[in-house]
Write a protein that binds this DNA or RNA. Structure first.
Length: 123
DNA sequence: CGTGTGACTCAGT
DNA sequence: GACTGAGCCACAC
């Protein structure tokens, strides 16, 4: 399994925000490379709203088209915050990407957490 | 407007 | 680890 990081990790915040800013959440989630995971809180912070983890979850709950790798988003304990079939789907997709689950059904975040290389630009 | 409800998180016990 | 309570954001009633 080779893990490839995205070429660059930038978010276009200038884009008009709709759906309570959910597009920002989707933009960040789309950056998560295959075989890596992120947490709701991290996604929210990266999208510009630290502490708004529920907001990130709400965005994914309202996800329409499946062009966002939502399955790579876990809760702060490394667990899946979904019940039933959707939770099973999430776990299956992650495992298909090489993500390992412990007996407790959790992922070792230290090992699989997405660590983006932030590109800092000066004006 | 108040209240309840989520794909949440943290500190305290 | 677990359980709890409070804080959190946005939205539907």
């Amino acid at each position: 399994m080779n893990i490839t990081a995205p070429a660059r990790c930038t978010v276009d915040y200038s884009r008009r925000v709709t759906n309570a800013g959910f597009e920002r959440v989707f933009a960040v989630v789309r950056m998560i490379p295959e075989g890596r995971v992120a947490t709701y809180g991290y996604i929210a912070a990266f999208a510009g709203r630290p502490g708004a983890a529920r907001w990130a979850g709400q965005a994914l709950a309202n996800l329409g088209a499946d062009d966002v790798p939502w399955h790579r988003v876990l809760n702060a304990t490394g667990g899946i915050s979904l019940d039933g079939a959707r939770g099973a789907t999430q776990r299956r997709r992650l495992q298909a990407e090489g993500v390992v689950f412990t007996n407790g059904g959790r992922v070792d975040l230290e090992r699989f957490r997405w660590r983006p290389r932030i590109e800092i630009r000066r004006e």
